[in-house]
Design a binder for these strands. Structure first.
Lengths: 66, 66
DNA sequence: TTCAAATGTAAAATATACTTTACATTTAAG
DNA sequence: CTTAAATGTAAAGTATATTTTACATTTGAA
């Protein structure tokens, strides 16, 4: 699992805390997602994608090992 | 969280066990997802969507309470 | 109607997402 | 350089996804 949350966040010039609040999770959760420490639920993925107005697949990408 | 897994499965005329094997989870996991007993990870959602050749959003939909 | 396949369900165990608190490090602006 | 904001990280706790085993019920085809 690979994601481009930090890129989307850079485009919108927002902090991890901003995004966390926008999608209703803690800042550490966003930080951990960006660091690929774990895989989000599809609910959180949908919220993040919707926030950035992109399809889930544009932000979260499967890798061979998934 | 609402999903249309059983519909996609009906279109392809496949069993829960078939889909489970195709995406690498147990049959009970598919059964529980169809019964909305829990929310899958985005990895599993991506695999299911990819298997049905549709975007995640076409199969998994956020609800107000999410 | 009968039988096998498909589905529903449940409990126990394990893995992992997510939160909270707290602190250290980095970065950017003044 | 100094300071505040942003980020990285970590540990402990809670919630929940997923598996395994097992059995009951439903459904469909012969």
């Amino acid at each position: 699992m690979k994601n481009t949350i930090h890129v989307e966040r850079a485009i919108k010039r927002m902090t991890q805390a901003d995004l966390a609040e926008a999608v209703g999770v803690s800042r550490q959760t966003i930080n951990a997602l960006e660091a690929s420490k774990y895989v989000p639920s599809v609910v959180l993925a949908l919220k993040i994608a919707r926030y950035f107005d992109k399809p889930v697949e544009a932000i979260f990408e499967l890798e061979k090992e998934d």
